[in-house]
Every structure is written in structure tokens, then in C-alpha cells.
Amino acid sequence: MTDHDVREPTDLDARLRTGTARIDETRLRPALDELVTWARIGSTKPRITRLRLGVGIIAAVAVGSATAATAIGLNSTFPHNGRQPDAHWVYEASNGQTCDLWMRVDPDFELDPPATPADGATYLRSLVGRFDLADIDLTEALSEWLPAPNSSIGEAEGTALVMWMTHHLPDRLPDGRTPQVTIEGWVDCDAEPEE
């Protein structure tokens, strides 16, 4: 080592700092906001504690074929588009929120032979009837899905419930046909309880 190589003592701190990761706090902020929402909802015990069907839940539904998919609208008014929802659920989320969940099977698909509204009603009944609500654990569905920022826990769990259902659809209709459906769900909850 020569004198030329020797730096002043304060250089050590400056050089040490070059070894640390530099974080762009401004860019980081939106991602942290999302992460906070993710942690808040993911930290709950996501189990729907009470679920009952609304009155007249299954209306006439048209059923056809399409790739299974789910469209979720949080805090949105149910877009009737001339149709009523096919199912209306009321549930109590793990934090005590009471929520409404409307579901609809997408009618814009076809089967061979073409499905009838009665097929859709049968399908939804078979879907609902196969679930033991006490066994529904939404942990996996929630871990696969990033909730929208500012979602309440009830909204997140309701959305996860719809996702859970799409993952557990019956493989066959009662008549043996393979259902390929799109299920849409809308969630609306009362205010979150104060901690």
C-alpha cells in the first residue's frame, strides 16, 4: 500500500455506504401501500363464518360454454343489464362485517345442444349444494390474489369466496355435460368494525 492509496479516515464511512442498497422511497410508496393492504387482509383468518342464501336466489339462468373465468367488482352496484343476479348470498366475514354477495352465471355462451335457463338453475343448485360452508377455507384463494387497495376484509373474503367457488366447480352437469362457465360476483359490505 502506498501513501497515494491511503484515504482520509472519513472515507471509510463514505465507501461503506456504497455497499448498501439504495431505495427510491418515492417509487416505493405505492408498492408499500399495496403491501400494507395485502398484509392486513392476509393476516386475518379467512373463513366465512355464516352464509345464507338470499330469497329467491336462483332465477332462470341461461347456461352455455365458455372458458371458466371470474369477474369481480368490488363495491360496485350490481349491473343488472336487464338480468337479475342468479344468487344472492349474505355472509359474515371473519372480522364481523356483514356483506352481500351477488353472483351471476354468464349467459353469453352456448352448449351443444344449447343450454336452457333450466340448465343454469340446475347448475347453480348443484354448485351451491356441494359446498359444506364449515369447510371453506379461503387462505389459498386469498394468497393467490392481491386485493384491491382499500378493500375491506369482508370484501376481500367475499371476492375470495367467488374465486374459491370457481376453483371447485362441479366437473359435470347432472346430465354429464362439462360445464364451462363464467361466474361474476359483486360484493358490498357494511362498515368495518372499529378495533
Binding site: R15, G19, T20, A21, I23, E25, A31, L35
Partner: peptide, 27 residues
């Protein structure tokens, strides 16, 4: 491990810069 959404993971890591020159020697 809780696998974060890939988009959020990329978003977080994109905010980080590690010095690729002098910093490597210091680390």
C-alpha cells in the same frame, strides 16, 4: 413463504439500486 403477487414483487424490487462497481467490493 407467502408468495407475493408477481407484479407487486417486481414493483418493490424495481425501487432498489445496488452499486454495481465500488459497492461490490465493499459488500
Amino acid at each position: 413463504r407467502q408468495a407475493l403477487d408477481a407484479r407487486l414483487r417486481e414493483h418493490l424490487i424495481a425501487c432498489v439500486e445496488v452499486d454495481q462497481f465500488d459497492g461490490v467490493a465493499v459488500r
